[in-house]
Design a protein around this nucleic acid. Structure first.
Lengths: 240, 240
DNA sequence: CCTTGTGAATCTATTCACAGCG
DNA sequence: CGCTGTGAATAGATTCACAAGG
């Protein structure tokens, strides 16, 4: 669609705000569902309805990647998916190491969301001798003492108990991991250049209970506060 | 510590912004860790360092709950925990139903973050006959066809495969659940008065890979973009 | 005529900076 | 003094509203 001429700016020169970074994968998912349903063209209005956001927001978000829409028509579903995937490095293949192969770790490794989008689990670690040596999918679980030999992995997932999480994070960082996804209910401390995100059941439940409670209290009348609409992985800021 | 006098305003009249709602449980967790370590008084500066945020933000967040600090000294750790807990309805007991008892569901039910903070799993459902009837902790898994008999549960957790998630969400809402936490990689549609939050591995990984990629590209020099610091469960807005 | 793409307006959140109190 | 609590300033995100393109 674009024939990048020498000297012209790349298709995507702009800086993308964090809020948008979190929404784009959501659009991508919806687009995938639409495409599977045979929808080859989609308007910002439709996409917005599916994502439960404002249509202007969808357009602004998408416009940050480039001008991929056709006025009067909308966006080409497949093409838009490809553009988002490209921006998110889904064309690259990412090796991921998962540490802590309990129920959670196993669930993560087998999860639908993992295999898709170019994420490949290349190493699994646990400390439990009864787990070490077993296979989860095509990968065999190694003992955590083998972690120092890990190479070429940029993304690490921590799914250990809270008590072990910091130690594991340190080990992953030491071996060159640059991005961590922490499922342990513990604030981690990592060097400032390591990207750290948390997924935390307990905090999610507390947020739900906060709004639930607010509602029961306030709604002696009827006006539900219904927070922003809440959802799909936002991204505040925290760390150890 | 406070002796509420008749006629005076409640300790917490102000409206709490969503961004703050997501951070408060993080502070609560840190405070708990500090308290266990014997720290009985904490300054906004210390708390901010632990949470990787600005100290002014910590103070503003906490001030929304009331004036609980002592100038020149800081905050009383235990008291602050109690105040946050109260604001989050952790004094109440919340019944939670979990649907989808695969590895993920089992991991969630057994997770450390669940039992703490007054969340009590009171019902488990699955569709797999080989899982129905088994016990996870003190609760026995029921068949999803039993869901319509569910009563008194306000919070539901969806940990089914994506294909079943919408149906399960509908069933939960039908039976009076007001807040949903969805782990299935699928955008859900619920009535506007139902609070919905997503926890999504795939999207988290994509966000990591986005920033990772940005870094490798930009850092021909050295300036790492290091996003906002990223972390601990934010809360944007999405839905079906 | 319909839908994008985007400046301008608005709303929300963060950070600064300091008065006020223990 | 030191640290909280908070107005005022700044930065960021969302929404509006419309010109421009197919």
């Amino acid at each position: 669609v674009s024939t990048p001429r020498e000297g012209e700016p790349q298709p995507r020169p702009r800086r993308i705000p964090e809020a948008t970074v979190v929404r784009l994968p959501v659009y991508e998912r919806i687009l995938g569902e639409l495409l599977r349903a045979g929808v080859t063209t989609v308007s910002s209005e439709q996409l917005a309805a599916a994502a439960r956001v404002n249509a202007a927001k969808v357009r602004k978000d998408l416009s940050l990647l480039g001008s991929f829409g056709t006025r009067g028509t909308g966006y080409d579903t497949a093409f838009l998916i490809a553009q988002i995937d490209r921006a998110f490095g889904v064309d690259r293949d990412w090796s991921v190491a998962v540490v802590g192969i309990g129920n959670l770790g196993r669930a993560l490794v087998n999860s639908e969301g993992f295999s898709s989008h170019g994420f490949r689990v290349t190493a699994l670690f646990d400390i439990d001798p009864s787990v070490v040596g077993t296979a989860v999918g095509p990968v065999t679980v190694q003992h955590v003492s083998e972690m120092p030999r890990l190479e070429g992995v940029r993304i690490g997932v921590v799914s250990t108990p809270a008590a072990a999480a910091q130690e594991v994070a340190d080990a992953l960082v030491a071996v060159g991991v640059r991005s961590l996804l922490n499922f342990a209910p513990r604030v981690l401390s990592v060097p400032p250049d390591v990207i750290l995100r948390y997924v935390d059941l307990s905090i999610e439940l507390q947020v739900l209970s906060f709004y639930q409670r607010l509602r029961s209290e306030e709604s002696g009348g009827g006006g539900v506060p219904v927070l922003r609409a809440v959802g799909l992985m936002p991204g505040p800021e925290m760390g150890a």
